[in-house]
């Protein structure tokens, strides 16, 4: 998602970025579909069963990409928000606001799939282990960002306030993660530690393909939402009127 338009300044204005994003979105949808089908087929059809966890482990093909995306999108959101705060680029603040709902959705999906994975493995829907708990807190951070931006009417102030919250949140994520981990180390360690991958390579490819699919999906959906925000905020300008044929 951190693609940087090549002519940075030419596309920094919403007016120039709107049509460009419009052209790119179908491509990202196509990529998301291709990676999705590939990842799922590897994960669900080709990959062998796991020794102890049987077939239930296949949930990681959904759980891990979702967790990755929820974490990654928060970092990207904080990046765009910080840029918007520092340089007053309205476009990057809009991008941050566009990313937040998708990030929140991935955080919720990560919790949902984590719970459904935990039930057969550990016998309980919700287990207070370090990663699930910090995922829950990450969801709260997302909801806080969205609620703050919704509560402030003036778009510029909403952007800047949201940016500060996102930056403070980013600084706190490692602290929260390690304090939760310190508090409870029930979780079986990170399931994808590239150094000693305890999984067959096919599983690894399956997961990476699913992650790419989620990433393409996130780019496409946030570009669409960014375009919607642009229309909403720039509705008094002439280029929006021309865009709508007036």
């Amino acid at each position: 998602m951190s693609h940087r338009p090549f002519h940075w300044y030419r596309y920094a204005s919403p007016q120039a970025f709107y049509p460009l994003a419009g052209r790119m979105i179908p491509w990202f949808w196509a990529l998301a579909a291709i990676f999705g089908v590939a990842g799922l087929s590897v994960g669900f059809l080709i990959a062998p069963g796991d020794a102890q966890q049987g077939e239930g482990y296949r949930i990681i093909f959904l759980h891990v990409p979702a967790s990755w995306m929820s974490m990654f999108l928060y970092l990207v959101m904080a990046f765009w928000a910080g840029l918007g705060l520092a340089f007053r680029f309205r476009l990057s603040s809009m991008m941050a606001s566009a990313l937040a709902p998708t990030g929140a959705m991935f955080a919720f999906l990560s919790l949902w799939t984590g719970a459904l994975w935990g039930k057969p493995m550990w016998g309980a829907w919700w287990v207070w282990d370090a990663r699930l708990t910090s995922e829950l807190i990450l969801l709260f951070l997302y909801l806080g960002f969205i609620a703050l931006q919704a509560a402030i009417d003036d778009p510029r102030r909403a952007d800047q306030a949201g940016a500060i919250l996102a930056l403070v949140g980013v600084v706190n994520i490692p602290i929260i993660y390690f304090s939760v981990k310190w508090w409870n180390t029930l979780h079986q360690g990170s399931s994808l530690n590239l150094a000693r991958s305890s999984m067959a390579t096919t599983m690894l490819y399956g997961m990476l393909l699913c992650a790419l699919a989620c990433w393409m999906y996130a780019i496409a959906i946030s570009l669409m939402r960014a375009r919607r925000i642009m229309l909403e905020r720039e509705k008094d300008t002439l280029w929006v009127r021309k865009e709508l044929g007036f």
Binding site: F140, L143, A151, A161, N172, S179, V180
Partner: peptide, 27 residues
């Protein structure tokens, strides 16, 4: 400071700040 002059600020503060309070609570 973030919720200054924002309607519904009181409730919003808890949503914004409680996640950040968790490390202090844990330790």
């Amino acid at each position: 400071a973030l919720t200054l002059g924002v309607r519904g600020g009181g409730v919003l503060v808890s949503l914004l700040i409680l996640p950040l309070y968790t490390p202090v609570l844990i330790f």
